[in-house]
Nucleic acid binder design. Sequence first.
RNA 1: GGUGAGAUAGUCAAGUGGCCAACGACGGCAGACUGUAAAUCUGCUCCCUAUGGGUUCGCAGGUUCGACUCCUGCUCUCACCA
Length: 410
Amino acid sequence: MHIKIKYKEKIMIEEALKEIHRGCAEIIDSERIEKLLKTYYEEGTTYTVKAGFDPTAPDLHLGHTVLLQKLATFQKYGGRVQFLIGSFTAMIGDPTGKSATRKVLTQEEIVQNINSYTTQAFKVLDESKTQIVYNDEWLEKLGAAGMLQLASNLTVARMLERDDFSKRYSSNTPIAVSEFMYPLLQGYDSVHLRSDIEIGGTDQKFNLLMGRQLQKAYEIKKQQAVLMMPILEGLDGVQKMSKSLGNYIGVSDEPNDMFGKVLSISDDLMWRYYELLSTKSLETIATLKSGVEDGSLHPKKVKEELALEITARYHDEAAANNAKAEFDKVHSKSQIPTDIAEFSVDGDIWIAKALVECNIEPSTSQARRDIKQGAVKINQEKVSDEQLQLTAGEYILQVGKRKFAKIKVN
RNA sequence: GGUGAGAUAGUCAAGUGGCCAACGACGGCAGACUGUAAAUCUGCUCCCUAUGGGUUCGCAGGUUCGACUCCUGCUCUCACCA
């Protein structure tokens, strides 16, 4: 009997480790993680997993959820998440990956961002196993003396080893001294929270390791394990997913958009998304991949499945299926979408003006060019006359494949 | 503080008195081919009912028939020196 339980534990730990390792870029001190899992399964003791979020932008996208999903995995295997909001550090601005000093946020902006942040995060995380913490709570109290003590743990030389700093330094891009403090403060968070594990993107490596170093320096008798996730590429497949680059899928995107965006990624990128975003097992994914390779599975089908999964996660099953049906209707059968924005105007209107009026063209100049190129359709019929006047009636206007509007001319 | 270099469309980057709404590259949009994939080919990419007009090349003035190009001042960025 006793042996049987032992055996079961072992299986569980193995399974957990496998899930935890999935998609990871690098793990430092994975022995520690294994030990934590072992104590959890043997004694039921939970452990803490810290992840920091910089409330600089109010919207989460799938790039962020890579991290969140990993946190959720830990929650499944005994982890308690410390969802750290960098309310204090946001005032400095994380220098990571930035070629210039970052803009500092106001208190108001931060508070606003935090609210929308957490509601979105709980679409992935288990709320009952998550503790939201704000680092101004303890960093505020640190004071000048504490700050100096903290700073004594780091040499300038070591700081400059950091890739982004050294690049900026050698290219004479300014580095604010306060930016040097950022990794220290982030590391101090780990001291204060006594985190067992911290996870973050690969670009956070330096900061994450700082946590380990400081935990040692402050003698809290443990050093956090560090798990790094790769940075998710955006829709273009090259640059990292980010709002400012416009290549993102937002957690709060409408189902139709979300579905369509996933389907627009390249086949190569699809596997990346599968690995980092899907909850399908790695075996299943491997099967899909070989199916595509030997031609027994159509890549579009496989992509659709991914799109359904993701859309259903942030909305629900029904919405996802609707999105798919809608997509097929518009693109495969080239029919008109169900929901189109409606506009109405009084009196006859020139086609180019009408397109601008409906917000599907930015200017009449652009509208004319598109008409010339045959990109504009009225009621599914290509428009060839750029002087066309719309007289009373209802029309479905279309530009390219994606932009639709309904206009009513009175 | 001193000296020098620079600021051109979404980004990079040509243009150094008229041929400039401004070469080129990237990005973006559209068309063909497709699976709203990739690759490829083609066109477009400041605004205006347009074979024309208007507003643009850091900002403000000036010289000139004419300025992105020359002059003056200002703002900002970078480099070297201190």
